[in-house]
Computed example of a mutant assay.
Amino acid sequence: MDNLVKYVLRSSYRVRVLNAIGNDVKMPSQIAKQSNVLNNHISRTLRQLREHGLIELINPEMRCGRLYRLTNCGLMVLDNINEK
């Protein structure tokens, strides 16, 4: 868990994206708007967070209107980050 927290804290984009998603289900455009991260950075950040098991894509068959949410691990990392 500590390694994942450190991984997220190394990038302000990762921290902002996790905070933007929170307990909700959101599309990349909503995440970009709430986190103030440009769309081209959002795609890369979402991919990185998925690869580390912190977020999940709930409708992978969709090309448009993809929906993301935090995994249980992602929620624990976010709680840990917000405690600091």
Rank of each mutant, 00 (worst) to 15 (best):
M1S: 07
N3R: 13
L4I: 02
L4V: 02
L4F: 06
V5T: 02
K6Q: 14
Y7H: 06
V8L: 04
V8D: 00
L9G: 00
L9K: 15
R10D: 06
S11T: 00
S12G: 12
S12F: 09
Y13G: 10
Y13W: 11
Y13I: 12
Y13N: 15
V15M: 10
R16E: 09
R16T: 10
V17S: 04
V17E: 00
V17A: 08
L18F: 02
N19C: 08
N19P: 01
A20D: 10
A20N: 10
I21K: 08
G22A: 13
G22L: 06
N23E: 11
N23S: 05
N23W: 08
D24T: 14
D24Q: 11
D24Y: 14
V25E: 03
K26Q: 06
K26H: 07
M27G: 03
M27F: 14
M27E: 10
M27K: 06
S29W: 01
I31K: 11
I31L: 12
A32N: 02
A32Y: 04
Q34H: 14
Q34C: 12
V37K: 03
L38T: 13
L38Y: 13
L38D: 11
N40W: 15
N40C: 08
H41E: 11
H41W: 15
I42M: 05
I42S: 02
S43H: 12
S43P: 14
S43V: 03
R44V: 04
R44P: 01
T45I: 00
T45F: 01
L46Y: 00
L46N: 03
L46S: 06
R47T: 11
R47K: 04
Q48W: 08
Q48V: 01
Q48R: 07
Q48G: 12
L49R: 02
L49N: 06
R50W: 04
R50G: 02
R50Y: 04
E51T: 12
E51N: 06
L54H: 11
E56L: 09
E56P: 01
E56N: 01
L57P: 10
N59D: 04
P60E: 15
E61Q: 07
M62D: 15
M62R: 11
R63V: 09
C64V: 15
R66K: 03
R66S: 03
L67F: 12
Y68L: 01
Y68H: 13
R69N: 00
R69E: 00
R69C: 06
R69H: 09
L70K: 00
T71I: 06
T71H: 10
T71S: 08
T71K: 08
C73P: 04
G74Y: 02
G74D: 08
L75H: 13
L75W: 10
V77T: 07
V77W: 07
V77L: 15
L78P: 01
L78K: 05
D79Y: 05
D79M: 07
N80W: 14
I81C: 01
N82A: 00
N82M: 00
E83H: 12
E83N: 12
K84A: 13
